[in-house]
Design a protein around this nucleic acid. Structure first.
Length: 738
DNA sequence: AAAAAAC
């Protein structure tokens, strides 16, 4: 394919040249001078030593081999998390494919008002001309099409970004190449045309500089931010207040209720779900004996429907949590752990040191329970409450196991991975790698992340150089397997984090296919805070006499989370959310749909609450960045779909708001578990309409949570109390008067 | 029905 990055026809696509790699004559030909139409055109340039052009097809084809020679660079992949975030963010920016769907979303939404309103706004803002012209002209789509080829080029150029990801030194590179970054910056802008203005702001180049230059103190940044940003942010606000946007919201509300009340329409699907039949057909080899009725009962097909069935499902639900007892889970007592060290559990000195550097000085109960068993080589099911340290519980012994089997001495390039860690979301895969990688590196093992939303060649390159541990999400992993670029045949340890979720519809089958690609006798480790018999499909097929471990006394009564339910009128919901979110401290808000997450983010900003969104309609760059903004404290409010419900750890989230109640009790547990981690305190508040009260009570009882239900209207003290605001003097006086 | 997960 002819490359289009020689814009201006600098050079034919085929340009093999034996002198490749030699430095061009000093100064080299200038870009324009290669164009036949350029007045500075110099024909002899064809014979001149070729300039370094890393990104053409030949180079790419040769890349894997070439890379192997560049040993020092291998380290790039293993660099600590800091660089990672950057890197993951950057290439993904070109994922305009990710954006396409959103366009449709928007078209479907009654968002026309928004757009009509917004167009003039941009003019008013007098933003830089670059984006402008296109916007006004509005032929954005055509522009995009024209640019399409360039984008491919950009994908190809990914390795260049590698350099940027290297420590700060790389930045210099970048400064020297302004043009490319112009282009990079521009790409999103075109997409932005299709999007709510909100995103624009995030994309804008200046902000990136902010980020780079101003570290986490970011919070203060906000206030001190140049007026320009303020203006950008505020402008829409004023407009939005005037515009009919609220109608959108009102329009949508009824629809949601419809859905809630709608009976089993979609259910048929799930009942027909092949996996369930699988499970039923596979007469529970060894489990059967333990619990005859359990697998025969129709309760498995029922379970997923509990979201809509209302009271009817109640009879089946409570059994979900009992499974592990049936498997004779061993409950470790907190006092059993007392005084134990990681070394006592069987981990080597390097790993223990790495754990200490990660802040894990002594093992948590779940870690003390599972680490020795994993080291024995047994299959393990582990259940530990959210935030109880499950990642280390499987990550550390996994590394130790790899050391024992061949160890880190085997650094042969192109060696096959020997461990696989699967997670349900990219963010979680990234986070797991951030924990496991330093542990692995401490003994000379390498990890790599394999997940979607970012160009794959980087990942493929890492695999070709050889890694020991693959951490990723099912889609891309299967993709690379099918492409023949990922060989799992030597994988001897497989970890499924959030294992019960990985058995849900849509995940189970890919996961099964992936596991079948690993060594037959590979050790399987399944972990989740809500591990239940939903994992039977995997247990039956893949696990052999698994050890089941949990931590004694980890019930909700012992939890550090305070649960509240606010019963609100629908028309008050927006105001109450604003009032809750306008607080000090990190707040995570869950919505049921991506569209609502987006809308809520805008609404909060309208109300003066700086917030970012996290959901599957964002490209990976924004997902990574927005989550990072919350982690770094640059923003206090993140509005997310359930993409953030499981596993994601952000320090110091002290309030979780469920703008939409979850449908499943497990979802409640996991969302709530974003706060109150590692023994910290936290509050979870769920907003429900009166009509949902009963369903909510049932859900909470399944989750074994007791929560106070309170009717609330905007301005109520209870809202301030939940938000952690100190009551005003007037409020206190009113109280004492009562 | 939604969300997630590949290009």
């Amino acid at each position: 394919m002819p490359k289009k990055n020689n814009v201006g026809g600098k050079r034919p696509a085929k340009n093999y040249d034996p002198s490749y790699g030699k430095r061009p004559a000093k100064g080299g030909p200038k870009a324009g001078s290669r164009s036949p139409g350029h007045r500075g055109f110099r024909p002899e340039v064809e014979d001149a030593p070729r300039q370094k052009n890393r990104w053409d097809a030949d180079d790419r084809a040769a890349r894997s081999g070439a890379r192997d020679d560049r040993a020092p660079r291998f380290n790039r992949d293993e660099r600590p998390a800091a660089g990672r975030g950057d890197r993951d963010g950057r290439p993904a920016r070109f994922d305009r494919d990710d954006r396409a769907p959103r366009r449709f979303d928007r078209d479907e939404r009654p968002a026309r008002f928004d757009r009509d309103d917004r167009a003039p706004r941009f003019n008013r803002d007098e933003r830089p001309a670059a984006g402008r012209g296109d916007r006004d002209g509005r032929p954005a789509r055509f522009d995009r099409d024209e640019r399409a080829p360039r984008r491919f080029d950009r994908d190809d150029r990914a390795p260049r970004f590698n350099r940027d990801e290297r420590p700060a030194a790389g930045r210099g590179d970048r400064d020297g190449r302004p043009a490319r970054f112009d282009r990079d910056d521009r790409a999103p802008r075109f997409n932005r045309d299709e999007r709510p203005a909100r995103f624009d702001r995030d994309d804008r180049a200046p902000r990136r500089f902010d980020r780079d230059e101003r570290p986490a103190a970011g919070r203060g940044d906000r206030d001190g931010r140049p007026a320009r940003f303020d203006r950008d942010e505020r402008a829409p606000r004023f407009n939005r207040d005037e515009r009919p946007a609220r109608f959108d919201r009102d329009d949508r509300a009824p629809r949601r209720f419809d859905r809630d009340e709608r009976p089993a329409a979609g259910r048929g699907d799930r009942d027909g779900r092949p996996a369930r039949f699988d499970r039923d057909e596979r007469p529970a080899r060894f489990n059967r004996d333990d619990r005859p009725a359990r697998f025969e009962r129709g309760d498995r097909p029922e379970r997923p429907s509990h979201g809509d069935r209302g009271p009817r499902r109640g009879g089946y639900q409570p059994q979900d949590d009992v499974v592990l007892e049936r498997l004779e889970a061993q409950a470790i007592q907190a006092e059993d752990v007392e005084g134990k060290t990681f070394g006592d559990l069987g981990l080597g000195g390097n790993i223990v040191n790495a754990l200490a550097e990660l802040g894990a000085a002594a093992p948590f109960p779940i870690q003390a329970a599972t680490i020795p068993v994993v080291l024995e080589g047994r299959d393990v099911l582990g259940r530990g409450r959210t935030g109880s340290g499950k990642t280390i519980a499987f990550g550390a012994p996994l590394v130790e196991r790899l050391m024992e089997n061949g160890g880190g001495k085997n650094r042969r390039p192109g060696r096959l991975p020997r461990a696989l860690i699967l997670a349900p979301t990219r963010e979680l895969a990234l986070q797991i790698d951030r924990t496991v990688q330093p542990i692995a590196r401490s003994v000379g093992l390498f990890t790599t992340q394999i997940y979607g939303g970012v160009p794959q060649h980087r990942q493929v390159g890492a695999l070709q150089r050889g890694v020991d541990i693959v951490v990723g999400t099912p889609g891309r992993i299967e993709d690379l397997i099918e492409q023949g670029r990922l060989d799992l045949s030597e994988v001897s340890v497989v970890v499924l984090d959030e294992a019960d979720h990985m058995c849900d519809l849509g995940f189970l089958e890919p996961v099964q296919r992936i596991i079948r690609n690993t060594a037959d006798d590979s050790q399987k480790l399944l972990f989740s805070a809500t591990l239940d018999k939903g994992v039977a499909a995997l247990v039956n097929e893949f696990l052999e006499n698994p050890a089941v471990h949990e931590v004694a006394g980890e019930d909700q009564a012992s939890s550090t989370i305070d649960h509240r339910v606010l019963v609100v009128e629908h028309r008050d919901k927006d105001r109450i959310l604003e009032q809750l979110a306008a607080r000090n401290g990190k707040t995570l808000i869950f919505s049921r749909t991506r569209a609502y997450a987006e809308r809520l983010t805008e609404q909060l900003e309208d109300a003066g609450v700086y917030a970012v969104a996290l959901h599957g309609d964002l490209n990976q760059a924004k997902r990574t960045r927005n989550l990072q903004q919350l982690t770094s404290g640059r923003v206090d409010v993140l509005v997310a779909t359930d993409v953030a419900a499981r596993g994601i750890h952000v320090d110091e989230i002290d309030l979780v708001i469920q703008a939409d109640a979850p449908d499943e009790y497990k979802t409640y547990t996991h969302r709530a578990g974003r706060t109150g981690r590692a023994g910290r305190e936290g509050t979870v508040v769920t907003l429900i309409p009166r009509s949902r009260r009963r369903r909510m009570e049932e859900l909470l009882s399944r989750a074994e949570i007791s929560a106070e239900f309170v009717d609330a209207i905007p301005g109520d003290d209870i809202i301030d109390e939940i938000a952690g605001r100190v009551p005003t003097r007037a409020q206190l006086e009113a109280k004492t008067a009562e």
